[in-house]
Design a protein around this nucleic acid. Structure first.
Lengths: 372, 372
DNA sequence: ATGAAAGCGCTAACAG
DNA sequence: CTGTTAGCGCTTTCAT
């Protein structure tokens, strides 16, 4: 009776003429061994005689057997799936990050479950989903997480790693570029290029990244006794950034240097400055970005921007994650990976401090100019 | 004894002081009901009395219960996870596609498991993974799949939808833009703009998309009695496309029109033509792309390109997929969604045929010029 | 080295 | 409407 009952249930679910996936039990029967023998054959460190292994393997390939990972993860308690939450893939920097993450994780035999949230939105509702799927870990790319839920993750033992964002909550590791120092560096660079009227185009105030970049920039300018930057909002989108730039350039006294919290906004600003105001960006107006996305290097922009080393950030994040999944949680807290100011043509050059590194021109503050 | 044994096992796996996720059984005990009552409360269409529901919900929130979707999918046979295979996210067109797919699927209550393969590589090894996870369906974005495995998917009842690629195999649905017609349209457009020396920059010959675009372009040129296009290889990458363009423009007799199989290559070609050869693209040399990615519209490129309606493709793909997951497999085979030639400044304009649609300039072949 | 047996957390008949 | 019961396909003792 049993098989019939099962088949009936099955038929109700898959109304078509499908052979349902073959189970370990079936392989066992076909090979004349026990089901546990089959399991052992497919478990890396298990002890099976060569004969049994051969029999099982033969039967398995004959029947087209593939172990059901869902079932095994139910019992082992680990799914080897990690959730990746990202505010959309339209921003090339995020796309690059997720791409690298996906590759790194699959190299470590983890699968990626992708969640696209919205910019500035909390990851909370998504996280609820994630908790239901019993994922092994969670990576938050440029996404926020309420401390309540962060806590809950800690309680449940779900390792959380934030990438390109940080948080106050302990038990949540984070990997970011050096936003503060990078922004300060840009400040110095612009100062050295004798700019006077600065503007900072923010991303989202809810993002620690944008706040840190603003703080670093502002502080450096203040230290140098310059006029603090005017702050405008670009929302990390080209539409808003374009509008903001338009306003800026329509004003009677224009800024002579705009630092945008990311490359996308910087390129949008360049587009507006060049095509709507006919400005020669790099001579009449300096624009600097942050991230060093692929497009920043293209001849169409040649954007001066602070590089965020995607590979390094990803390696770090994955290392932390893997450690955490294995119970070693040594590395909680913030991790900062350094970057460089990559100098191209979108901002006026300072007289000194330029050097060549790996085919790129970078700027470093010379010793005597150094402030901190 | 039992709980101890379980706890021991648990401790071995999660070496830290974690409370393991609470189970439905625990909620049941705390609420003074049966475990199935708990299950019913969390099953949409089940009948539970208000009192029980209240008791269960109270206990559940108190304990922080979240149903284990892994366990439930083991028994229902559906995971509500679909695999999405894509050759990297660095190509903005793919990123946009995956982004839209992710959003559309999460709207239908499906989760996305992301696999990044490599361009031109078969999805086969990845698919093996996928089969082990018992995903509900598979979406192949611009990725190939051997017919052997496609068949195997059919046998197992795993619905497969290819997006931006097609295949000969039945039982595999595909959604593509109208590559052939689009390429033919570009041919006519270029002809009407009185170009003479054409080149087609291919993506990968293994991609049906590139082949279709080539065929459509070539045929149209031939029909018109023009010299067939010279074919060069761009591999869908900016490096190779740049090199190819360089070679092309170094030659004694330059082409006057280059049709690139995608926007990325077209923009790479523009970069080389402008910055290395000082050419005025759109006057001295015409370059046309395919996809109409976001960047194509930017003032820095203003690329003339055939639009692929991402939203429409995604809606189609998701609809097919959802149908298939529910056993209705009416829509297998190829689906083609149309596009338009979006005219901007990277190619010389023909005297007639231009019109405004939704704020964009598009080109349509006038009746008397029409050939097929 | 191998099989039997006991679950992992959940859903779905089936009685009541 | 609710509890009981029987598994989903697998891993892991525990004897043998």
């Amino acid at each position: 009776m049993k098989p019939f009952a099962i088949d009936d249930i099955f038929e109700k679910r898959r109304p078509r003429e499908f052979r349902r996936p073959v189970t370990g039990h079936e392989v066992a029967r076909s090979a004349g061994v026990s089901q546990s023998a089959v399991s052992r054959v497919f478990t890396p460190g298990a002890s099976v005689s060569v004969q049994t292994r051969a029999k099982v393997l033969a039967a398995a390939t004959k029947l087209g057997y593939r172990p059901n990972l869902i079932a095994s993860s139910l019992i082992t308690g680990r799914s080897r799936i990690v959730g990746v939450v990202v505010p959309g893939l339209r921003n090339p920097f995020y796309a690059a990050l997720v791409d690298a993450l996906s590759e790194a994780l699959s190299g470590r035999d983890y699968r990626v479950m992708l969640f696209t949230a919205w910019h500035g939105t909390s990851a909370d509702p998504i996280l609820d989903e994630i908790l239901r799927y019993r994922l092994d870990a969670l990576i938050l790319v440029s996404a926020e997480l309420s401390s309540r839920l962060a806590e809950e993750c800690g309680e449940v033992g779900l390792p959380v790693v934030m990438v390109n964002r940080k948080t106050d909550s302990e038990a949540v590791s984070s990997v970011t570029g050096d936003n503060r120092a990078g922004a300060a560096c840009i400040g110095s660079f612009l100062l050295a290029g004798s700019h006077r009227r600065f503007v900072f185009m923010a991303g989202l105030d809810s993002s620690s990244t944008s706040r840190d970049r603003e703080a670093g920039f502002r502080e450096r300018l203040l230290q140098a006794g310059a006029v603090p930057p005017l702050k405008v909002h670009g929302s990390y989108t080209v539409e808003v950034a374009s509008r903001a730039t338009r306003e800026l350039l329509k004003a009677r006294t224009r800024p002579d240097a705009i630092f945008c919290a990311n490359d996308q906004m910087a390129m949008a600003a360049m587009d507006v400055a060049r095509s709507e105001f006919g400005l020669d960006v790099g001579r009449e107006l300096s624009i600097v970005g942050f991230d060093d996305t692929q497009l920043a290097a293209s001849p169409a922009y040649r954007l001066t921007t602070f590089s965020q080393p995607v590979e390094k950030m990803v390696d770090n994040a994955v290392a932390i994650l893997v450690d955490a999944c294995n119970g070693r949680d040594l590395s909680t807290g913030p991790h900062i990976v350094g970057g460089r100011l990559v100098v191209r043509d979108s901002a006026r050059l300072p007289p000194r401090g330029l050097s060549q590194v790996g085919g790129r021109t970078v700027w470093t503050q010379s010793a005597k100019q150094s402030i901190d």
